[in-house]
Write a protein that binds this DNA or RNA. Structure first.
Length: 103
RNA sequence: UCAGUUAGCCAUAUGGUCGCAGUCUGCUUGUGAUGAGCAGAGUGAGGAAAGUCCGAGCUCCCAGAGAACAAAAUGCUAGUUAACGACUAGUGGAGGCGACUCUAAGGAAAGUGCAACAGAAAUAAACCGCUUAAAAUUAAGCAAGGGUGGAAAGGUAGGGUAAGAGCCUACCGAGAGGUUGGAGACAAUCUCUGCUCUGUAAACCCCAUUUGGAGCAAGGUUAAGUAAAGGCAUAUGCGUGUUCUCUCGCGCCUUUCAAAAAUACCGCUUGAAGCUUUUGGCGACAAAAGUUCUAGAUAGAUGACCAUAGAAUACAGAACUCGGCUUACAGACUAACUGAUAAA
RNA sequence: GGAGGUUUGGCUGAGCGGUCGAAAGCGGCGGUCUUGAAAACCGUUGUACCUUUGCGGGUACCUGGGGUUCGAAUCCCUAAGCCUCCG
């Protein structure tokens, strides 16, 4: 099963209609899905850093969500990174993602 | 040993657990169509992948040929290259004790422009001066010294003179001509000319050489329109820098709407390719033989944890593909050479 | 990925290689007016370093670094930041 969001349309739909949660370095958009499946997309803007930094942040977020299985409900998510996230360690990032999914 | 110069090379490795993206094979299954799932095998970022500063391939547009103009680029010589504004070897110039490094390096006597302020004067000659005569003014001669400036009529020394001056001589510099060496840039040397003619071309320009435009978001396949509206207009129009000539073709341009539609597939990775050896060349590089196939995504693939070794913690992530240039960078290693000190 | 533009004082924004630390406006500060404020009018106003008891004076700075030129905000090279566009 594919659990990634890939279409530009789906992203803009979530940005418009989704429910928002904030922490210091993250924003989470959430909306209920009509299928019995969850999907999650990751967004890291150019403000965060150069290409290799952005890739690293995205990989870490993917890894954390996959290992800890945070996204359980049948919903669609977009996890957006804010400035400053590139300086967090792996463990700090995990704490923060845990926090935002508990909200 | 210390300080340096140049060239090259590496850019963590090995093992384990979970996970990602293509490819191939096998099995299962499905759609209007492309497919989807599981298992196994094997592959998976860089020296700069970056900046996009040059040059090419490739694709589309420009109807074909010729001429002129415009615009842009390059600028010592010879070579290398598919090509280049790159590279190599040299020449001239600048820097360094040296190894060596840097160099947008054609033309100012084709023409035009500009040179603020200062200074008497800026391409031009007399402010302070010097000398002689006369006597406090003037006349004649001079350009050595002072001062201004980035630049002031070749420089230094000697002779000469009323004072001076290439006025004369020697050396240096400059120009013209010859000879020799070199493929050439140019170098060496000889003779002649006492030798006015600033700087700027990274101002216009002149000379020589080169260049059609856009870029893979190019463009194509499937599917889907002989859709609608407006403007110009039947050759005096349009045809990708402009103009002209000949041949030729055709209506041309703009806007809006529709479809899963910035979609699916192709383009997409075998290429002026890499590696090894030999030969030619001072070198850039070329030729031959053998050998290898080694990313191809499209919200965009490499991460997390543990162990061992360790100097490796930097800069940094392919997006059609090559050749360069430029910029960023923790460090490790190798070779050759230079200077200083010490010892033999 | 590709193509282009731009950067000048606290902000906006002119600027012919020389009189330019730089026009003009907004803003700030001081004054006039007012019981007080606003508006209006008048004046003034960049930063850093050095020097001076102070007034004042000098040097550097037009995104950073080089170069051409006697002289650069302006011309050339190079790097950085910001902005726009694409079937």
């Amino acid at each position: 099963m594919d659990h990634r969001l890939r279409k530009n349309k789906q992203f803009s739909y979530l940005y418009k209609k989704g429910e928002k949660f904030y922490t210091r370095h993250l924003i989470l958009f959430k909306i209920c899905s009509k299928f019995k499946n969850y999907k999650i997309g990751f967004s890291v803007s150019k403000k965060i850093g150069k290409a290799n930094v952005r890739n690293k942040v995205k990989r870490r977020m993917k890894e954390i969500v996959r290992v800890n299985n945070f996204a359980k409900d049948y919903s669609n998510y977009v996890l957006m990174a804010k400035e400053g996230i590139e300086n967090l360690s792996f463990l700090d990032l995990r704490k923060e993602i845990e926090e935002i999914f508990n909200k």
